[in-house]
Simulated assay, not measured.
Amino acid sequence: MEMILKWLEHKELGSDTQIFCDGVGVLGLAKPKKIGGYVPDVFCSMPSTGHMIIGGAKTPNDLETRHTKNQLEAYADYLALHSESGELVIATRFAWAPCARSILNNLNSVRTKGKPEVQVLCEFGIWG
Score class of each variant (00 low, 15 high):
Val120Ala: 01
Glu123Thr: 05
Ile35Ser: 04
Ile4Trp: 02
Ile19Tyr: 07
Gly128Gln: 09
Ala57Ser: 10
Gly37Asn: 04
Ile19Val: 15
Val89Cys: 02
Met1Pro: 08
Ser85Arg: 14
Ala74Trp: 03
Ile19Phe: 08
Asp62Met: 14
Ile19Cys: 08
Gln71Asn: 07
Thr112Glu: 12
Ile103Thr: 08
Met1Asn: 09
Ser85Gly: 09
Lys58Leu: 13
Ala76His: 03
Gly114Asn: 06
Gly28Asp: 07
Asn106Gln: 06
Ile4Lys: 02
Asn108Phe: 08
Asp62Ser: 15
Ala80Asp: 09
Leu13Asn: 09
Ile90Asp: 01
Val42Asp: 01
Pro60Ile: 14
Gly25Glu: 13
Gln119Asn: 04
Asn106Glu: 06
Ala30Asp: 15
Cys122Gly: 03
Asn70Met: 11
Tyr38Cys: 04
Gly114Ala: 08
Lys33Cys: 06
Met46Cys: 12
Thr49Leu: 07
Arg93Ser: 09
Ser83Arg: 07
Thr65Met: 09
Lys31Val: 15
Trp96Pro: 00
Ser15Gly: 15
Leu13Lys: 08
Arg101Thr: 08
Asn108Asp: 07
Ala80Met: 10
Thr59His: 13
Met46Ser: 09
Ile54Asn: 04
Ile53Glu: 03
Gly50Trp: 03
Gly125His: 00
Val24Thr: 15
Ile19Pro: 07
Ser102His: 15
Asp22Glu: 12
Lys11Gln: 15
Tyr38Lys: 07
Ser48Ala: 14
Lys11Ala: 08
Ile126Cys: 01
Leu72Met: 12
Ile126Arg: 03
Val39Glu: 13
Thr49Arg: 09
Pro98Asn: 05
Pro116Ser: 02
Glu12Cys: 07
Lys115Val: 09
Gln71Leu: 08
Thr65Tyr: 05
Glu117Pro: 00
Leu104Asn: 01
